[in-house]
């Protein structure tokens, strides 16, 4: 590959060039007083400061996805196709935590047996990351081994510097996008270390204790989970806003004429999630459900994949109506073992 870094005037200028190149773009926009990823047609629509309320996962893993449809005929049943994935899209202004979240989902849905509906959408997404220069109070990427300028999961990463923006080309898909952008990018290099250091210094200190995965596993049977989870309402907001949570339910919606099989988001915090047809529920109370969340993120997944299933976006901490803080709960539970 030719130079792997470029310089541009600003993130806005890069977005303008991407739109001018005729690309379909989804970027953070302000909707109803909150930031959300949505389709944009003009660069000014994008809001490039702050964190979206929900993560970027919805583009690849939509909250409702048709797997297939069917129509009752005479004779037999006619099968109808699943959803048509949206047109190729540049997902612009994705924070490093969110981009890393997509990388985690790629691993989960890409593992055999590969998840075709996810991959069909994912193959059409080019991720343009945007480093954070203003972390928020709930940000915790450094606690999970990432940073406000981390490159995981991005095809291109833009880092705002004093003199403009540094564009790092990280994948062939990123390079293909750069090829479309012409004059907006100038070959050039710059050091982002200072920006990284400044952003990291602005973050509240949060850390995960050493040996967390094993400590949590050992704490599985502790009665203390009931106290830790007492305030949790089981509302599932944490999972719905999380960039790495990926549980889903498969439901049929049908009537006399036919129907469709859908995949819809689900969450381990719901009682219904593990309810058996017999009526037995192996996770009978919120303590067991919350424990599942903590252990999946910080014990089961890391033991299998060598890193937490959390990218430290802090959304769950920020959005939880009951003030649950998964970092705090996980660390306390593991320490209780020590």
């Amino acid at each position: 590959m030719s130079p792997t870094t470029y310089l541009a005037d600003s993130a806005q200028a890069v977005l303008t060039a991407i739109l001018a190149a005729g690309q379909r773009v989804v970027a953070p926009v302000e909707q109803a007083g909150l930031l959300a990823f949505a389709h944009v047609e003009q660069a000014e629509q994008a809001q490039l400061i702050g964190q979206t309320r929900a993560s970027a996962k919805e583009l690849a893993f939509p909250r409702t996805q048709r797997l297939f449809g069917y129509r009752f005929g005479n004779p037999g049943v006619e099968l109808l196709p699943g959803e048509e994935p949206p047109a190729p899209t540049v997902l612009f202004g994705v924070r490093p935590c969110d981009a890393a979240g997509l990388a985690i989902l790629d691993g989960v849905f890409g593992a055999e047996p590969a998840d075709a509906p996810y991959l069909a959408r994912r193959a059409r997404i080019t991720v343009v990351g945007l480093s954070c220069d203003q972390p928020q109070a709930h940000c915790a990427c450094t606690a999970v081994g990432l940073s406000p300028t981390a490159t995981d999961g991005s095809d291109l990463l833009l880092t705002p510097l004093a003199e403009g923006v540094l564009v790092e080309v990280l994948t062939a898909r990123g390079a293909a996008l750069v090829d479309l952008l012409g004059e907006a990018l100038r070959p050039g290099a710059a050091d982002k270390a200072e920006v990284t250091a400044r952003a990291e210094a602005a973050m509240a200190p949060r850390a995960l204790p050493a040996g967390l995965a094993d400590g949590l596993a050992a704490a599985f049977g502790e009665a203390a989970w009931a106290d830790a989870a007492a305030r949790c309402l089981g509302c599932g907001t944490c999972a719905f806003v999380c960039p790495t949570c990926h549980c889903f339910d498969v439901v049929d919606e049908s009537n006399l004429r036919g129907g469709q099989r859908l995949r819809v988001w689900d969450a381990c915090q719901f009682g219904l999630f593990t309810l058996h047809a017999s009526g037995h529920n192996p996770r009978a109370d919120q303590a067991a459900r919350y424990r599942q969340r903590a252990l999946h993120k910080f014990s089961y997944y890391p033991r299998a994949h060598g890193r937490p299933m959390c990218v430290g976006c802090g959304r769950c901490v920020n959005a939880c109506p009951a003030g649950m803080d998964i970092f705090e709960v996980a660390a306390t539970a593991a320490a209780g073992q020590g």
């Binding site: 929900a54 909250r63 309402l233 509302c235 907001t237 988001w265 109506p321």
Partner: peptide, 16 residues
């Protein structure tokens, strides 16, 4: 419609 379009069906409204 614009309001309900945003609904994630998380049912947090119900849970709380």
């Amino acid at each position: 419609q614009a309001q309900f379009d945003r609904c994630l069906r998380c049912y947090a409204c119900r849970a709380v």
